[in-house]
Design a protein around this nucleic acid. Structure first.
Length: 506
RNA sequence: CGCGGGAUAGAGCAGCCAGGUAGCUCGUCAGGCUCAUAACCUGAAGGUCAGAGGUUCAAAUCCUCUUCCCGCAACCA
């Protein structure tokens, strides 16, 4: 049987500023998904990268008195280094200034142009002289823009409207296409209005940092038309048909809720025009809110979550971000909840389970994994729960409920702690070493399976656990522990964090 | 009447689509255990499920209205 493939993307991040928690979150999420699918024996392609054209980049570069490309080259490593720090294992890193991408975009522009889906017209709208861009009616009414005037400009347009009906039908026929569901409704609501055509050019006179239109040298491409194409550039749309056929359509485009319309509407209609299949799922996650709405004054502790990495380690941060964010909702990032999560889940439950079990095995079995012999009811209960876990986790992950997958694993960890407590092998051992061995074997198997299933979230820490158990490379199937294996010594996995008692009220 | 989502114990969430004793984690209180990272286990307190009305033998769950919060309303990534 041929392995399934899994192609996951993050947005390509815009290099007008340094990476922040939003970038980190999406990328970790993609990484975790990629690793789970790898664990399920699927072939995975994980793409991330940078969006380097457009007005904001131009402005940022000008401000720094650098060339556009130099500015991009300066920022790119910051992203790459952060991904290294976060343990991100991507397969390709695309930058829209790369030759492969520019060629692909120009090829597509030419193709769409020749197919008659691009035409020239005059764009008229409110233009902010200060911002050097057109603004929407809503933006104009907000009164936040000065020097606003009506401006007419000749531009090239993509016939997005042609594909409106097709797109609406597609969304209705594919409930999994846009997730979560309320985002899908949002797009369907948006598409109830007649869709206009998309202006896809910018005159060089106004903005020249972009990909030149192959059929009109006076213009560069609008940055979104450029950026979205990255998803097919990387798997080889232009120059590697075999590779492209293997990976496209993408299984998941992960995005923030702020770029929902561009992906669901612009990108989809572009693909429809190109007669390419649409991605299977576009998943929009929520945003991290740091603390309260206005947190500055009372506590003076405006926390940049990235700082936590240096202080507490990468993996607790990965764990926290994955565990705490629910579906496509927003979530609050507070140091208090981070520490609570760390102590209760990682230190008290998971780390401590390893500690107590390995301690007992050291004490009564000379550090060697004992034989399980035949299991009693309580043992069978744990085994049953552990054996059912893999499928539950897979199911949750496939539906993007990472937090629930993690919770399900922690339930096994907690149940195992409970089991050890109730079975009291330290007492049993005085009468029957055999029975104590059975209990400890069962607990260690449950721990091992928990570690395997948590490994996509915390690859390094779970590796330590598996290494201690002599079970690196094992699967979530029951019974892979090797009897008589000598346990390795280890430090506390997640030493408890002291609660700083200077917080008040929050 | 623009479209849509939400309001469940001190906190964060599940349950709602397929009505039938209100559940999980954290926190609090009281015990227990002592193998373990002052950890773990047992038990308890705490909710008129935003409010009002309706359907039903039965509503957190379905319907209507009200209040409050939030998202979207396109050419900026």
């Amino acid at each position: 049987m041929k392995n399934k493939k899994f192609y996951v993307t993050t947005p390509i991040y815009y290099v007008n500023d340094k990476p922040h928690i939003g970038h980190a979150y999406t990328t970790i999420l993609a990484d975790v998904l990629a690793r789970y699918h790898q664990m399920a024996q699927e072939e995975v392609f994980f793409l991330t990268g940078l969006d380097e054209h457009g007005q904001k980049v131009q402005q940022a570069a000008q401000k720094r008195e650098m060339s556009y490309q130099a500015h991009c080259d300066d920022l790119a490593p910051r992203f790459i280094q952060l991904w290294e720090k976060l343990g991100i294992r991507y397969d390709d890193f695309i930058r829209t200034t790369q030759e492969r991408h520019i060629k692909t975009v120009q090829h597509i522009l030419q193709k769409v142009y020749e197919a008659g889906d691009i035409y020239q017209d005059e764009y008229e709208g409110w233009y902010s002289v200060a911002e050097e861009r057109f603004i929407t009616e809503t933006e104009k009414d907000s009164g936040q823009f000065r020097d606003v005037k009506i401006l007419k400009e000749r531009n090239w347009f993509f016939k997005m409207s042609e594909y409106q009906d097709k797109l609406v039908d597609y969304i209705y026929e594919h409930p999994e296409f846009i997730q979560p569901e309320h985002r899908r409704n949002e797009i369907l609501g948006f598409l109830k209005q007649p869709l206009g055509d998309l202006c896809i050019s910018r005159p060089k006179s106004r903005m020249d940092w972009g990909i030149e239109l192959p059929f009109d040298k006076e213009y560069v491409t609008y940055v979104w038309f450029d950026a979205l194409i990255n998803y097919i550039t990387a798997p080889g749309y232009l120059d590697d048909p075999k590779k492209f056929k293997k990976w496209w359509p993408a299984d998941v485009h992960l995005i923030g809720k702020d770029i929902l319309t561009t992906h669901c509407v612009y990108w989809s209609t572009m693909l429809l025009s190109l007669k390419l299949p649409l991605p299977k799922t576009i998943f929009a996650h929520g945003w991290w809110l740091v603390g309260e709405t206005k947190m500055s004054k009372s506590l003076g502790n405006v926390i940049n979550p990235l700082d936590l990495i240096d202080q507490y380690g990468v993996e607790p941060v990965r764990y926290y971000l994955m565990r705490e964010m629910v579906l496509g909702q927003d979530a609050q990032f507070t140091l208090e909840s981070f520490i609570k999560r760390f102590n209760s889940d990682l230190a008290n439950d998971f780390g401590n389970l390893l500690n107590r079990v390995s301690g007992l095995v050291g004490k009564y079995f000379d550090g060697c994994i004992p034989d399980q012999s035949h299991l009693m009811q309580a043992d069978l209960d744990i085994r049953k729960q552990a054996m059912a876990l893999e499928e539950k986790v897979r199911d949750y992950v496939n539906h993007f409920h990472i937090n629930e997958a993690i919770e399900e694993i922690l339930e096994l960890v907690r149940a195992t702690n409970k089991y050890v407590e109730h079975q009291a092998p330290w007492k049993v051992a005085k009468e029957s070493l055999n029975s104590a061995g059975r209990i400890l074997y069962t607990a260690m198997e449950a721990l091992r399976i928990s570690a395997v299933l948590l490994s996509p979230v915390m690859p390094q820490k779970t590796h330590i656990v598996l290494d201690v158990l002599g079970a690196v490379g094992s699967t979530p199937k029951w019974g892979e522990l090797k009897i008589n294996t000598k346990l390795k010594t280890h430090e506390a996995l997640f030493p408890r964090l002291e609660v700083k008692s200077n917080e008040k009220g929050t």
